[in-house]
Amino acid sequence: MASIFTKIINNEIPSYKIAENNQYIAILDAFPLVKGHVLVIPKQEVDKIFDLDRESYNGLMDFSYDIAKAIEQAIPCLRVGVAVVGLEVPHVHVHLVPLNSMEDINFAKPKLKLDANEMAEITSQIKSYL
Rank of each mutant, 00 (worst) to 15 (best):
M1K: 15
A2K: 15
A2D: 14
F5H: 05
K7D: 07
N10V: 14
N10P: 02
N11S: 12
I13W: 08
I13F: 11
S15R: 11
Y16D: 01
I18W: 00
A19W: 11
A19Q: 09
E20D: 10
N21F: 07
N22K: 14
Y24S: 07
I25T: 01
L28G: 01
L28E: 03
L28W: 11
D29Q: 05
A30F: 12
F31V: 00
P32R: 08
P32D: 09
L33M: 11
G36E: 01
G36P: 01
H37T: 07
H37S: 07
L39D: 02
V40R: 01
V40L: 06
I41E: 02
P42H: 03
P42K: 05
Q44M: 12
Q44V: 08
E45P: 12
I49L: 07
F50K: 08
L52R: 03
L52V: 11
D53T: 02
N58F: 10
M61L: 07
M61D: 04
M61N: 05
M61Y: 02
F63N: 03
D66E: 15
D66G: 15
I67Y: 00
A68W: 01
A68K: 01
A70Q: 02
A70G: 01
A70T: 01
A70R: 02
I71G: 00
E72Q: 14
I75V: 13
I75Q: 04
P76Q: 12
P76S: 10
C77K: 06
L78W: 04
R79N: 06
R79Q: 10
V80P: 00
V80D: 02
G81N: 09
G81E: 06
G81V: 00
A83Q: 13
V85F: 11
L87N: 07
L87F: 13
E88S: 13
E88Y: 13
V89R: 03
P90F: 09
H93I: 01
H93C: 05
V94F: 06
V94A: 04
H95L: 07
L96A: 03
P98A: 06
P98I: 00
D104H: 05
D104T: 06
I105Y: 12
N106L: 03
N106Y: 08
F107K: 13
A108H: 11
A108Q: 13
A108L: 14
K109I: 04
K109C: 11
K109N: 13
K111R: 10
K111Q: 09
K111M: 07
L112H: 11
L112P: 08
L112V: 00
L114P: 08
N117I: 15
E118P: 04
M119P: 06
M119N: 11
M119I: 07
A120D: 10
E121S: 15
I122P: 07
S124V: 04
Q125K: 11
I126C: 03
I126G: 02
K127P: 09
L130S: 04
L130P: 00
L130M: 06
